[in-house]
């Protein structure tokens, strides 16, 4: 046992070192984008001297310039500042959604795959039912029932993604359960719960990571859509989706749409690229 774990550990580090050296440029760029986004959400005031709420009416609807990178909106507020300050809410809500989906879906999949039998049949039906309702509609009715704000939109988005995680987790658990080392653990007299937590869960959750990253990008899009429809926090909040939604009424000044859209797209593209990279290196 010790020998086996030792050799696998050394293999993991050597692979890690190789990939660290051989990261594709697009992957490096993606990490850079995500680093900026994280920095924006942690300390927005470091990146801009303007206020996201106070506008200068005389400066309304200015086009992008060195003074105002993304131009100004209809109230004379600096759009770049609004985007930077809106990052925290947009990113955190996507994170909440992923955590809800991964924990709830992961738990369902784990129990269904590990216990099998009746539990599996009941949970599989539940997942079927969740899958049967189009994701976005599900998110919309959940947020309607909960009330309109960004946290609720995040919860709704998470609920609508539970089924995906449940399916993947279940498939992984079943695959892991049939592995020889799990059988060996059973033969050595390990209890069900010990094996579930010590052996099955860590191995099965490895493939959930790329999915979680992918879902993070997707959640940004869904939450932006909910914000666009007005189901998130109302202005003066500046979630990306909300900024685009405000911009749509001022299409003659298109940067009001394109600038926040550009940031959203760049973020989601980067997240998706990282997810693909994780899946390949796994």
């Amino acid at each position: 046992m010790t020998l086996a774990s030792f050799s696998s550990a050394s293999r993991v580090t050597s692979i890690g070192r190789q990939t660290a050296l051989r990261v594709a440029p697009t992957v490096a760029l993606s990490f850079a984008v995500i680093a900026i986004v994280i920095a924006w959400s942690v300390a927005p005031s470091l990146f801009t001297g303007h206020s996201p709420i106070v506008g200068v009416p005389a400066d309304k609807l200015l086009s992008p310039s060195t003074a105002h990178w993304f131009g100004t909106d209809h109230l004379g507020r600096d759009l770049y500042t609004r985007v930077v300050y809106g990052t925290a809410s947009s990113v955190t809500s996507a994170l909440i959604a992923v955590v809800i989906a991964a924990v709830a879906g992961g738990l369902i999949g784990l129990l269904a795959g590990f216990l099998g039998g009746r539990v599996d049949i009941v949970l599989a039906r539940l997942v079927d039912v969740l899958l049967a309702i189009p994701n976005f509609l599900l998110a919309v009715i959940v947020v309607t029932a909960l009330g309109f704000d960004t946290t609720n939109a995040a919860i709704a988005t998470g609920v609508s993604a539970v089924a995906v995680f449940a399916r993947v987790m279940r498939a992984e658990v079943i695959k892991t359960r049939q592995a020889i080392f799990v059988e060996a653990a059973f033969l050595l007299g390990g209890s069900r719960w010990h094996i579930l937590l010590r052996h099955v869960l860590p191995n099965a959750s490895r493939s959930v990571l790329p999915l979680a990253v992918l879902q993070f990008g997707l959640s940004i899009l869904v939450i932006a859509s909910l914000a666009f429809l007005g189901y998130g926090d109302p202005p003066p909040a500046s979630d990306w989706g909300l900024l685009i939604s405000i911009g749509k009424d001022y299409l003659k000044w298109p940067w009001l749409v394109y600038a926040p859209a550009f940031v959203t797209i760049a973020t989601v593209l980067s997240v998706n690229r990282i997810s693909r990279w994780l899946r390949k290196t796994d």
């Binding site: 859509s225 749409v257 859209a261 959203t264």
Partner: peptide, 18 residues
């Protein structure tokens, strides 16, 4: 495909309108 799966669908609509 990977590009357009990263674009919010209302942005596509707004771009077309614009």
């Amino acid at each position: 495909p990977s590009f357009f799966l990263s674009v919010p669908n209302f942005v596509i609509g707004l771009m077309l309108i614009h």
